[in-house]
């Protein structure tokens, strides 16, 4: 009897994992809807018309595909972006390196 109960519990666990897995996977492949865009636009303080939203839906899905692909590459902390901040403004004079310490 105990063995049957144990098997049933394992079966239930399997079903839960399967359903959750399907749900999670679906979350990333679901069509992006107008409502999703309106929600995002609210977060970002943007206003868009119905036709503007319709036009950008395929592009948003392409971009999401790219994000997911990028994440699989998992760059380590020592890999910097190809954008370098430089505090020196045009016309600013910076003396050439030569240590002077007296």
């Amino acid at each position: 009897m105990d063995r049957i109960r144990k098997s049933f519990r394992l079966f239930l666990l399997f079903v839960v994992i399967f359903v959750l897995g399907a749900f999670t996977g679906q979350f990333f492949t679901d069509k992006i809807t107008e409502a999703d865009v309106r929600g995002a636009a609210k977060i970002f303080g943007l206003e868009m018309s119905q036709s503007e939203i319709d036009s950008l839906l395929p592009g948003l899905e392409d971009a999401r595909t790219a994000y997911l692909a990028h994440r699989k590459m998992t760059p380590s902390n020592d890999l910097g972006p190809a954008l370098w901040f430089n505090p020196v403004l045009p016309g600013m004079n910076v003396s050439l390196p030569k240590i002077v310490m007296t």
Binding site: W84, N86, P87, V94, S95, L96, P97, V100, M101
Partner: peptide, 28 residues
């Protein structure tokens, strides 16, 4: 701070964000 800074500042080919600049410090 001046003594330690003198030792740690300056060129390093491993960091492209470094900006070549002189360190002028005169205790007097």
């Amino acid at each position: 701070c001046a003594i330690v800074f003198q030792a740690i500042q300056g060129a390093d080919p491993m960091d492209v964000s470094l900006i070549p600049a002189a360190f002028h410090y005169d205790a007097n």
